[in-house]
Write a protein that binds this DNA or RNA. Structure first.
Lengths: 344, 344
DNA sequence: TTGAAAGCGCTAACAT
DNA sequence: ATGTTAGCGCTTTCAA
């Protein structure tokens, strides 16, 4: 089971040179005569020599690859962000290794440790909804593994962060629902310790307050930690509509939750389909097709992925320890669809 | 930039043993005394020793990881298939490295070569729509790299394959459209050299023939090789509706194309929204929400991913060269939504 | 039962 | 300008 059978040794032997000369010639070392260089390069080309990256990693302690940890690639936000990551990484000759935590803490730890032990040069992480104790990350970070957090970030580790302006995005969405004349607005969101959950809840509250609407605890539904089951959202919707004063509008704080929520309403509350207003975070690019329609809070996922990667590569390639960290905040966009005008 | 600072050498030094003894003790070599074993294991545990997988890979020529190459993780079929892959791989202690070709041949080659040179133990591939010359894969396969094709397969490499029953799925979808009374049925599909394209086109033709409808070349639209642009589908839809006899129904051969197609119709032919019937391959799990509605041909993506991985691990772990290869064919499911009854 | 030494592919300090 | 050698972390003959 060996490919890449061709090694530097083979070239050296064939050309009657030493391995070090060959090595230097291949990487264009200036001490090598043009002639030798030429011979070596031509021969290497001829026999299709490829350096063995594993040997390189072992030696150099780096791999020219970065690891990405997200909860679900099936989430539109993440798959778009990953495309942004790749666009930067490939241009700068880094490989991207994608892993999913499926919102589970143990999976996240396992992925991170595997990536670290495989000598990825850095990590791009969006925390799973189960991850509250992140000391395992902290210790890797302390040991010098560069990392950048995006989307679901933590304050506990001092490094670059890339997020959307969750507070503003939520405020605007809620405000929009209020502008439609609704007063009873529910909020469906993630596990409460996630950064995005807190910020989006804050935006929702801020809008209520701004328009002097009361905040009602009963209108807020947190997905359980796993938060990726239709079941859970069905239950939340049921409870909301069983309230003595059911909501007239719903604001949802996350991509998959938004879709589950539309499904749940269609299934469980068809009578309300026409009159309930829905807004929610989602990066689905077929949002125009949805019925019931939803006003989408869209994050610039691609750009966020790009920026996070640029920051990470900056950390990785910096000669001296970086002391100044940035938190880049991206604006969200509120997207109105006219599908309810067409089909409802 | 070194983590994993703890090596076998450290343990050996601390315990006054040789590295080889420690190595053997750690992997439970039977020649080591119980006592030494115990001491070593306890100490290793205490200082949190983790073997360096890179060193292992260099030595053993394998990595206990498998590579996956798909065109787009944002495609529902693929993200679901990958979940199936992971479910098997993690249970058997393999890591999964996901890469995307974005329907580009050069990206595919680059990914495959990177994976191979990183000593993945095997490859799970669904070809990009640009990939017609796959000699680069053939040569890796000849050198002994185990690979299993799924979804977009090739006949040129003799190995296991996992596909859906594309012919039957297409036949049933087309038949369903015919059963609604439609006679002019268009077909929108991928690049013509892909296996799935051929098979699905065949199914479509077979259904037409079975019900004695004429096959009309003008009703068939192939996405260009890149096939992942809304633009392209818009153009196809425009052309179809400009025909003297525009289609009454459309059958679409692929996940993303189906969604693009719904968007295009909504945008460009709103007048037809109520009367055109649409069926298409898609694994979107929010298909119930779509308006216009679509009858979905759904592939058992998760199971296909699982099976492909089981076959691959079988190849990887087989002691002797495998000579007998299987092509596993999975049934598709036709899913009817009632959303057009509710909203239209 | 344990240790010494070689080697996986490559680079780099140290000769020459 | 080129060669010799050691070493990255680990396993595995071969010796003791």
């Amino acid at each position: 089971m060996k490919f890449n059978t061709v090694t530097i040794k083979d070239i050296a032997k064939a050309l009657g040179l030493s391995t070090s000369t060959v090595s230097r010639a291949l990487r264009g070392g200036y001490e090598i005569s043009e002639e030798t260089k030429k011979i070596v390069l031509e021969y290497a080309e001829k026999i299709n020599y490829r350096p063995n990256p594993i040997a390189l990693s072992l030696k150099e302690r780096r791999s020219h690859s970065i690891g990405v940890v997200v909860s679900e690639i099936a989430n539109n936000f993440f798959s778009q962000a990953i495309n942004g990551v790749e666009s930067v990484a490939y241009n700068r000759d880094y490989h991207v290794i994608i892993t999913q935590s499926h919102e589970r803490f143990d999976r996240e730890v396992m992925n991170v440790e595997h990536l670290a032990s495989r000598s990825v040069d850095g990590l791009l992480i969006s925390l799973s909804s189960e991850s509250s104790d992140i000391s395992y990350l902290k210790s890797l970070h302390d040991k010098g593994l560069p990392m950048v957090f995006f989307d679901r970030i933590t304050e506990e580790i001092h490094t670059h962060r890339v997020i959307a302006d969750n507070l503003k995005g939520s405020f605007e969405a809620t405000e929009y629902l209020i502008s439609l004349g609704h007063k009873r607005i529910a909020h469906i969101t993630n596990a409460s310790h996630l950064s995005i959950t807190r910020e989006r809840l804050e935006g929702y509250k801020a809008a209520l307050q701004r328009y002097q609407l009361p905040f009602n605890e009963d209108y807020v539904k947190h997905g359980k930690s796993q938060g990726i089951e239709q079941e859970e959202i069905d239950q939340a919707i049921r409870e909301l509509f069983e309230l003595p004063e059911p909501p007239e509008a719903i604001f949802i704080a996350q991509d998959k939750l938004s879709l589950f929520c539309l499904m749940a309403i269609k299934k469980l509350a068809p009578a309300h389909l026409e009159d309930i207003a829905i807004a929610g975070f989602t990066n689905a690019n077929v949002v125009d097709l949805f019925s019931p329609s939803i006003t989408a809070v869209r994050q610039p996922a691609f750009d966020m992925g790009k920026t996070a990667t640029e920051l990470l590569l900056q950390l990785i390639e910096s000669k001296r320890p970086v002391e100044e960290f940035q938190t880049k905040v991206f604006n969200t966009e509120l997207i109105f669809t006219n599908s309810h005008r067409i089909s409802g």
